[in-house]
Amino acid sequence: MLEIKNLYAAINGNEILKGINLKVNAGELHAIMGPNGSGKSTLAHVLAGRDTYDVTEGELIYNGKNLLEMQPEERAREGIFLAFQYPVEIPGVSNTYFLKAALNSIRKHRGLEEFDAVEFLLHMKQKMKLVEIDQDLLNRPVNEGFSGGEKKRNEIFQMAVLEPKLAILDETDSGLDIDALRIVADGVNKLKRPDNATIVVTHYQRLLNYIVPDFVHVLADGQIVKSGGKELAQELEVRGYDWVR
């Protein structure tokens, strides 16, 4: 599904990613772990198409297409979804309105009929149960005044509504208490299907107690220094990141 080949990326001339290689197949769940500043969030944003990062070398091939030539919205329509570490507050734009615009642009791109108000509402109701989110939250402006937990839950809810093929979760566990973490993880697990893939970016192992990865990669100083199965995460928890550097 996704192939990252020798990826180099920089921000304001500072090189952050220094030759990443990674292959993600449909049905797989990959965890990318690493210390602060190792480039985890940069990788997540580069995949989603944030233009503050300059890709200086390498390739991103997604379902046979060159991702680097695609705008963020085109990537989203092709099925890429980034759950933000810091979801943005958008005053004045209601969650429902925003999601309807997003979903319909994706459906249109995929040659599906756009949802009308009723169809959209039904679709939403179905997904709401999945991530235990309140209707009240959805009527409010996007993320405005949401607590940290509510914002993260809203990210997972958006993921449920938009049904991506490749979901990238950027530090979704940060700032969550144990209950919120469980709800978020449950949502991710329920959304897992044989035809989609997930990349979980995290600093701590604790999220991986709830979301069990097929592969774990350790990122340090812009490179993947170690890859393995789920047991690698536990080993890291015990031995710390110094062990892999």
């Binding site: 944030r50 963020p72 989203a76 943005v88 958008i90 925003f98 791109h109 938009l162």
Partner: peptide
């Protein structure tokens, strides 16, 4: 940031 957030959900620029 808001612009990127919206675009990352499939909404055109």
């Amino acid at each position: 940031d808001a612009l990127f957030y919206l675009r990352s959900r499939g909404i055109s620029e």
